[in-house]
Write a protein that binds this DNA or RNA. Structure first.
Lengths: 293, 293
DNA sequence: CATGTTTGTCTAGTGTTTGTATAAGGTACG
DNA sequence: CGTACCTTATACAAACACTAGACAAACATG
């Protein structure tokens, strides 16, 4: 049961990861990136873990690392000791259980398992759904603020660990912040992590930042995009003037639950309609033209 | 896990730092500014530290210093081989400069240098003084909220990286939180790190936690000590009742700038009189007897 | 002004890295 | 048997990087 049957032969695997068959064989031969099992007839059988390595290698290459070095990183990152869960969503309930029991060690181990699936998968399929679920249960008083704080801290610690070095590199620069009053930063951090994964550099100001300050900093560092994230739309409206000024000079994206099409239209900003992962991927896929005010 | 071991080949690196490849090779040859590793095929592999040196050299040149001298300065500034146990405080001013220039890479490199002296030294002699200085300059409007947020995030990221695993182990357990309204957590995290360094386990709830919740959680996990940290004494007085109830059942310590002897006496808590490092060391040296209510 | 040094850039010739192509042959399965 | 798929081994071109040397513009100095 633990050895699942989703093992692919090379043609199908090449389609899944988007790497030509010849290249897969070359990477195996040159970098020892993969060591797929073989059938009795010597056909390669790739696993989910091979997929993870390939994607890790691709992520590094997207950030400008040469193939040989990217392969080295992808291999060294391998957390081989964790059996990747079949269904990422299956981790959410255990996470909530661990939070309810204030069991930080277990919570962190479950995060380990989640992130063994790759950062993006973990964020999209485990972390963000878990945060949503925590928020809902908190509103319906099924869990307390204490549990929410407990879990948030452990998630934040994990995400900021991944954020290490996200300011460096070469890609376009994004300035991330929550406007005054807004203190929920985790979605914003996820947004930044996805962008960084796509080769962007991140400048991060975090919670409760006066939008005037964001405007000042933008003048100094000329970001390609500015992302403002708020869960509560009142924190957007109360900074409306400054946001409009900001949007007039920089490509500005309004994100989070407090962002609506009406507000974005009125303030002249773009709108992040999806979850942080989808929005960030959309931005990375279609970056705004560099401009300065 | 994400980006500490990046190695760039010359083309990518040239793009990152904005210096032509030929110039990079010339600087290496003429000034010994860099000594990049080589691949088996003799290709240069540049690191983050090389990036730092180049940026430092550029900064000096921008101020009119000739390349040869700028290179000399950049080499001598190298925070990796820096050994100023004589005066870690010398790092504070450069940290503030880096924050003022929104130079996250340099800020992080300086933190590297600080923490190479040991976590406790770095926290006591660099991080906390720098935070104090930032607070003062902010109050006197020498720097802006943006700079403060920028620096705080980088410090928080570093500290939470060190906090990894602080919940595990076998020592006495401390429950750490800031009461409702209080959002300055960095001092509290430092406190926790020192305790963890002394073998304690940490349960952390972070900013803006209703003290009722702390009481609930304490009933569930029976901490040896509860630490409440507030910079603003109003956040203590506004939770006075709950704090008194908490102190009646658990050894409770009031810490941070908002903690006074009067308040502690009235609420029945202990008082952390010194900075976080000193207070945590005192607690670790003289732990309260285990008790439960 | 003339002289020498510093500095960034360019060239020529050689070697490396990397993705892909080809040949010759084996496997799976109706 | 035929067809689609897979194997290894070898080859190759394009992109990339290396060294050594040269050179003109900028700069400093007598």
């Amino acid at each position: 049961m633990s050895a699942r049957d989703d093992r692919w032969r090379i043609k199908e695997f090449a389609g899944i990861v988007g790497v030509p068959e010849a290249t897969l064989r070359a990477w195996e031969r040159r970098y020892e990136l993969l060591a797929p099992e073989r059938t009795a007839g010597n056909f390669r059988l790739y696993t989910r873990d091979d997929e993870r390595r390939i994607r890790s290698m691709q992520a590094h290459m997207a950030r400008g690392i040469a193939p040989a070095q990217a392969a080295g990183l992808a291999v060294s990152e391998s957390p081989v000791d964790v059996e990747p869960p079949s269904n990422p969503g299956a981790l959410i309930e255990p996470l909530l259980d661990a939070a309810e029991a204030f069991d930080a060690t277990r919570f962190d181990a479950l995060l380990d398992a989640a992130f063994s699936l790759g950062n993006l998968t973990a964020i999209r399929d485990v972390v963000l759904p878990a945060l949503r679920e925590i928020g809902q249960r908190w509103e319906t008083t099924q869990i307390s603020v204490g549990h929410e704080h407990f879990a948030s801290h452990l998630i934040e610690r994990r995400l900021l660990g991944l954020a290490k070095g996200w300011e460096a590199g070469r890609g376009p620069l994004a300035l991330l912040a929550c406007p005054s009053g807004e203190r929920h930063t985790l979605g914003l951090v996820c947004f930044g992590l996805v962008l960084a994964d796509r080769g962007w550099r991140i400048a991060y100001l975090g919670a409760d930042t006066p939008v005037d300050q964001i405007l000042d900093m933008s003048a100094s560092i000329s970001p390609t995009a500015v992302v403002l994230c708020a869960r509560d739309s009142r924190h957007v409206t109360s900074s409306a003037g400054a946001i409009a000024r900001l949007a007039a000079r920089h490509h500005t994206i309004l994100a989070g639950g407090g962002a609506t099409a009406t507000l974005a239209g009125r303030l002249g900003t773009a709108l992040a309609v999806e979850d942080p992962v989808g929005s960030a991927e959309r931005l990375a896929a279609d970056p705004p033209a560099e401009s300065s005010g």
